[in-house]
């Protein structure tokens, strides 16, 4: 599919914008963490759309965000267990 552009996003209603971004991010995150892809994508979708668009363009910023999400999840799970 053609790359998602800011103008395409702006044309979509807000709820669809998150779904659109999610469906682009999901496969990229799935390649990194298959079992946590849905959860991580959900966490990243709370970031504002402009940063999400940037992450779609630059894999390294996506990777660092995904690592951050993993760390936050693990810290959260540890807290829940203890």
């Amino acid at each position: 599919p053609e790359p998602l552009t800011a103008s395409m996003l702006a044309a979509a209603p807000l709820m669809d914008q998150k779904q659109l971004l999610g469906e682009r991010l999901y496969p990229m995150i799935h390649a990194l963490h298959p079992n946590l892809a849905g959860k991580i994508t959900g966490m990243l979708l709370e970031i504002d759309n402009s940063e999400l668009l940037h992450m779609l363009e630059s894999p390294e910023s996506l990777h660092s965000k995904v690592d951050e999400a993993i760390a936050v999840l693990q810290a959260h799970q540890v807290k829940e267990c203890s």
Binding site: Q19, G22, E23, L25, Y26, P27, M28, H30, A31, G38, K39, T41, G42, M43, L44, L45, E46, I47, K65, E68, A69, A71, V72, L73, A75, H76, Q77
Partner: peptide, 21 residues
Amino acid sequence: RKSTLNPNANEFKPRFNAQPK
């Protein structure tokens, strides 16, 4: 800086089965 990511964010459900390329 405090991470702004929310561990309680609800899971994203891809509408179509977003197969990784």
